[in-house]
Every structure is written in C-alpha cells, then in structure tokens.
Write a protein that binds this DNA or RNA. Structure first.
Length: 605
RNA sequence: CGGGGCGUGGCUCAGUCCGGUAGAGCGCUGCGUUCGGGACGCAGAGGUCCCCGGUUCAAAUCCGGGCGCCCCGACCA
C-alpha cells in the first residue's frame, strides 16, 4: 500500500469512460480497458497507458520488484536503443528479420530498438564481473521492448511495444544456473498468486533464445494464441510445440497383416487423405501422409548477410545451396509439428515446399510416396507413430495410384525417426498414458536456461579459484507487465465492467457523492479528505451534475474493489453505503467507522 | 507476406451501388427541469468526408496510386 496520500477527483481524471466500445476491440477485457479509460491505442500494437492503467502497472511492477529482490535481484535499467555491434556479435542481427526495428543514426551507424537485453547484459557482465566471488548474480529491469510483430492483435495481449520485467541470472556453472532457474520458477508462481492470476507452467521451446530448458507461464483462456497440452492425471504440461505423447501402435485393417507387401491400387482423383481413405474403405489413421517443407540452415558466417537492411534482400543473400527439401511422414489423421521437424532435420527455418520443388526431387505432389525418394533428394523424417504402425496406405508416387501395406524400415528407409506429429486432443500422455487435453493460453512469462551462448559471444568470463578463465552461465526470465494486466482484466470482470483485485487495482475505493443537498455533499467531501489522510487510495466521483445511473455505471466499469456511496439516502440510513465490486450485499457503515471498516475489508479483496 | 473488410464531427455509424445544399444517435457547451442504476426540454458549437492525382459544369460518392486500421491465414523470443 502506498505511503502517499492518494486521491483523485473523477471530474479531473485524465481518461473518460466510453458508453460504446470502440469498433476495433476484439476481446472482452480489452473493450473494457478502453471503455473504462485505462488504455488508448496510438498505432497498431502501440498503446498509451492512461493514469488508471499506469497506476495498475506500477502496482504490478512493485509486486514483480519485491519478488525479484526476494531472490537476490538487483534492479537496473538498460537502454531501449542499442548499437548493432552486440547483436552482430551474437548473430541475432542476422538471424532476426523484420521483427527487429532497425535504423541509422545521423552518422550512419546501425542501431536497433531492443527486443530483449541478453546481449547488453552479457556485455556489461564482461566488464563488471571478473571473479567467482561475484557470482552468482542476478540483475533485472522493467524496460520497454519493441518487436515489430507482423500482426498485432488482442488488445494488450499481442503488442509491438511493451514493458517487460526481464531478469538475467549470472552463474559460474550449470548447477548455479539451475538453482536460479528454479528460484524464478517459484517466484513466478508467487507472482501469479499475488496478482490473482492463475498461471500454468508448461515446458516450452527455446526458440531464438537458444539454450536448454525453458518454461512458459500461461494464463489458460480461450482467447490465448498458444496451445497447451495438459495431463490431468499426472500434471504433465507442455506447449504444443514441444508436447510429447506416447506413440500409439496401429491396429487398423492392413496394419495387423504385417506380412503383406506393398500393393499398388488405383485411386483416381484421390489427392487428399480423406478421399483415399474413403475410396479404399479404411480410416484416416490407416494411412500415411507425406508433407514437404524446405528448410534452410542459418548462414554459418554472419558476415555473409552483413548489411541486410530490407526484408527483400534477405532471400537474395541466402543461397539456394543452403536449402534442403524435407519430406515428413506422419499418420494420415495427424498434423505435423513444425518445431519438431526443425529439430529433427537440423534446420533453422522452415517453410512449406512449392509443388515445383517437390517435382524437382522426382516426386508427384498429391501422390508422393516415401518409397522411391532418390538418395539425397530429400531428407525423410518419419514420425514415431508411423514406425510403430503396421502397413499403411501411402502414395505410389504416380498420379492416381497409392500403395497399401507400406511399412517404414522395410519398404523405405527413413533418414530420421522422431516425434514430428503434433500432439492431439486425447493423445496418451508420455509419462502416465492418461489422455492429454488441449487448451489455449496466453504466455505471461517465460524462463530460459541460456547457458554460455551470449556470454561467450561477448567474452563475458570470470576467473575461478584456480585462476582459470571460465564463461559465465546465463539465464533469462521475462514477464510482460501489460500482458499481465490484460490477463488479469480478462480473468476478473463481469457484465458491468472490470472487477480488479485490490493488489493491482488503480485505486482501492470508488467514492460516489450523490444528492444535491449541501449536507450530503459536505459529508462526501469530508470522507474523501479523510481517506486521503488515512492512505486509502480513493477515486472520488464529484460529478454531481451527472445522473446517479451514469456514475454507478462508470464506477462498475472501472472495477475498483470497493464502492462507497454517500448521499441523503445513505445518511438517513446511518452513514455510508459500502459494497464490494465483486458482489455481495451492501452494508451501511457509520461515517466515523468507515475508514477502519474499509481498510479491513480491503484485506480480503 | 497471402486473402478479406473498413476509413464521414470526440465515439458508434448512415449516406457511396445510382455524382448535385454533409446527416443521425451518443458525447460536448449554455439555460431550465430532474436527482440512488446510462433522465427531459430548449438553444448551440463542432467535419481538410484518410491523402495525392484524374474524370466531370459538379466528387464523400466514379477511376488510378498511396497511407492507416481491423479480421482470417502465414509468422512469432
């Protein structure tokens, strides 16, 4: 709770309420945040936080600050504008395309807007950290990031400019890193509790961050853009990108008859799995489908792409020789998990192959088959479930023909066998075989064990007790502050507006002065002054000229945890009317007890 | 980056097909009435119809180009 006197008159509040939601608000919580006067959009994915939102964000930041300090963090602040050099040294200047906002300063020096701060932390660590005596260490900041998303959406959920709490652990070895990683895991769990937002930790892909382990902290909601696989029986949870499941052995017709050899069958016009299955009288799971991608290795020598400024140049610099065709074989009823294909095939980038690229490898789009892929023409990646299955229906690499009874390992040789099928609703859990459930979620926070990657490129080393130079081990941990607020708003609302929990609400009390009489008005003003004096954060609706209905509705919309009404009616009843925004009965409280009762009630909001 | 939609007062939108005086509701200002769940009357202010160019006697409206915003997909640390 703030130490300062905090009060605001609604008549002067910068940020009005809107009766109708602006046209371009897609999610319920975002419409409310706009209508209630919390946020305003300046450009696609770029928002201003008006005083109400800013007060909430500062409270959220304070919670984050306390939790970071609690695990030994030191707050600092690093620039939003970076020179290109550190990002060139780490390679990310070249690996990241349009998502990075680049520009040149007046001298023509390459600059960028920070997307995150690993490079700069590593750079500073190189100069500040020299001895094992200074480790472990942990620094963090609340800082603006800019990521030029191809498509911003969902209000504050997916924006281009955002404030992030980002912390960076610095350790002498893997054990130290794992310790700080776990400390963050626990801190994030506490943060979810304190902000009243249910968070689910899931295993996740390391993506462009690199490194070993990673978890995401997800708010499960239908408006989420990520898909999670959860096991209710053993608690396994993972992002769909990395979710593992037990390969199911096939049991369909043909699959039992392991002795049967491939048999060519005529399947005119049947270019989709559904067509083929129907024509041959089998189920989709008795078929195998082959999906083609073109993967590219990231340029080994960063210099080969130096100076890339425009997205259009990127494709020209990357030579065709770096690309390879990847043929992925999954069961007909399953989808391909592209992230896992990247790992299996060892490529950095993946895109669907064009028909002419498939033909160039001597294959027939629509009827392509893993049988007869010319050595070296394509990397054949076969899903584990396909290997575990018996004879499946597969393409014959000949227009209008398929094979029955095709078996991996007997009829064709895979280059890689891996789980490249995407997890599906009801898939058997890897650890307990229970059915996995797929839900949507918003990534509120993430934690990465980076290892020595960034510190090595910045030459951040320490000297150990034997006098030997060692690389520093880094972990990186983020929480989107605005995204957290957006998720809290999504979780805590009703038909009338926001219902914010006290720890993150911009004010504690919405005070309404009703009625025309001088006595009632004086009483309301007196309570306003008293609340301020007693450090109860109060938003005082002093707009007596408006009708009561308007003011009640505005109060509900803004969603402060408590509402106090003082008017002729309440005075006649014995004082002020006090009501929780979250529901329940209103109570009448004598004015001389009001502040105390309010303070007590706040403890449970 | 592919597909689609939209751009008119502060907000939500009509008007565009079929060219001819810029509109409604809400909000805002003033006066009066009302006064515990989005009140009422009267008076009023407020618009480069996204921008540039073209066609035309005449363009919010038709044509060309651009910009912005939104949705679906691709992508995403």
């Amino acid at each position: 709770m703030s130490r300062q006197r905090v009060g605001q008159r609604a008549s002067k509040l910068f940020g009005v309420t809107l009766r109708e939601p602006p046209a371009e608000t897609d999610t319920a919580s975002h419409a409310l945040l706009v209508r209630a006067g919390y946020v305003r959009q300046l450009a696609a994915g770029i928002f201003s936080y008006l005083p109400l939102a800013w007060r909430s964000l500062r409270k959220i930041e304070q919670i984050l600050r306390e939790e970071m300090d609690g695990i030994g963090g030191q707050e600092m602040s690093m620039p939003v504008v970076h020179p290109a050099e550190p990002w060139q040294a780490s390679g990310r200047w070249y690996e990241i395309d349009d998502a990075m906002a680049r520009f040149q300063d007046r001298r023509g020096r390459d600059m960028l807007l920070a997307m995150t701060h690993e490079e700069v932390v590593a750079l500073h660590s190189a100069s500040e950290l020299r001895s094992y005596r200074q480790l472990p260490n942990l620094v963090y900041q609340m800082q603006t990031k800019f990521r030029d998303e191809p498509r911003a959406r969902g209000g504050l959920i997916r924006v281009r400019e955002f404030i992030m709490k980002d912390s960076y652990s610095l350790d002498r070895d893997r054990e130290g890193l794992e310790k700080q990683y776990q400390a963050h895991y626990d801190a994030y769990t506490r943060i979810g509790r304190r902000t009243r937002l249910p968070l689910t930790a899931v295993r996740s892909d390391v993506g462009m961050m690199g490194g070993r382990a990673a978890h995401e902290f997800m708010y499960v909601t239908p408006i989420g853009e990520d898909t999670l696989a959860l096991c209710d029986e053993c608690g396994y949870s993972a992002n769909r990108d990395v979710a593992a499941f037990a390969p199911a052995a096939g049991s369909g017709p043909g699959q039992d008859n392991s002795g049967l050899l491939p048999e060519l069958v005529h399947t005119p016009q049947a270019a989709t799995i559904a067509d083929v299955a129907a024509m041959l009288g089998v189920e989709r799971k008795d078929t195998a489908k082959i999906v083609f991608f073109v993967g590219s290795k990231a340029a080994a020598d960063p210099g080969s792409r130096a100076g890339v400024q425009e997205s259009g140049e990127a494709g020209e610099v990357r030579s065709a020789a770096e690309e390879k065709l990847i043929a992925v074989v999954v069961r007909g009823d399953m989808e391909v998990n592209q992230v896992q294909v990247q790992y299996a095939a060892g490529t950095a980038d993946l895109r669907p192959a064009r028909d002419e690229e498939i033909r160039a490898a001597g294959l027939v789009p629509g009827f392509a088959s893993p049988i007869g892929v010319t050595e070296g023409a394509a990397t054949v990646v076969v899903d584990e479930t396909v290997v575990a299955s018996g004879g499946l229906v597969a393409g014959a690499n000949k227009v209008d023909y398929h094979f029955r009874h095709v078996r991996c390992g007997r009829d064709y040789e895979p280059d890689v066998v891996s789980q490249v099928a995407a997890v599906y609703e009801g898939a058997p859990c890897m650890t307990c075989a229970g059915p996995l459930r797929l839900v949507r979620g918003v990534e509120v926070g993430n934690i990465f064990q980076l290892g020595t990657k960034y510190c090595e490129s910045m030459e951040a080393r320490y000297t150990d007790e034997h006098g030997a130079e060692q690389p520093i081990w880094m972990g990186s941990y983020g929480i989107g502050v605005g995204r957290l607020l957006a998720c809290i708003a999504e979780e805590h609302r009703d038909d009338h507006g926001l219902v914010l929990p006290a720890p993150v609400a911009p004010f504690h009390v919405s005070l309404l002065g009703l009625g025309r009489g001088d006595e009632a008005r004086a009483a309301a003003v007196a309570v306003y002054e008293e609340f301020k004096e007693k450090r109860i954060e109060v938003l005082f609706d002093d707009r007596w000229e408006l009708s009561a209905g308007v003011r009640f509705n505005d109060s509900d919309l803004r969603g402060l945890p408590l509402r106090v009404v003082i008017g002729e009616r309440s005075l006649k009843a014995g004082g002020a009317e006090l009501k929780r925004r979250s529901g329940g009965e209103a109570q009448t409280v004598p004015l001389d007890e009001l502040a105390e009762v309010v303070r007590d009630l706040l403890e449970s909001c």
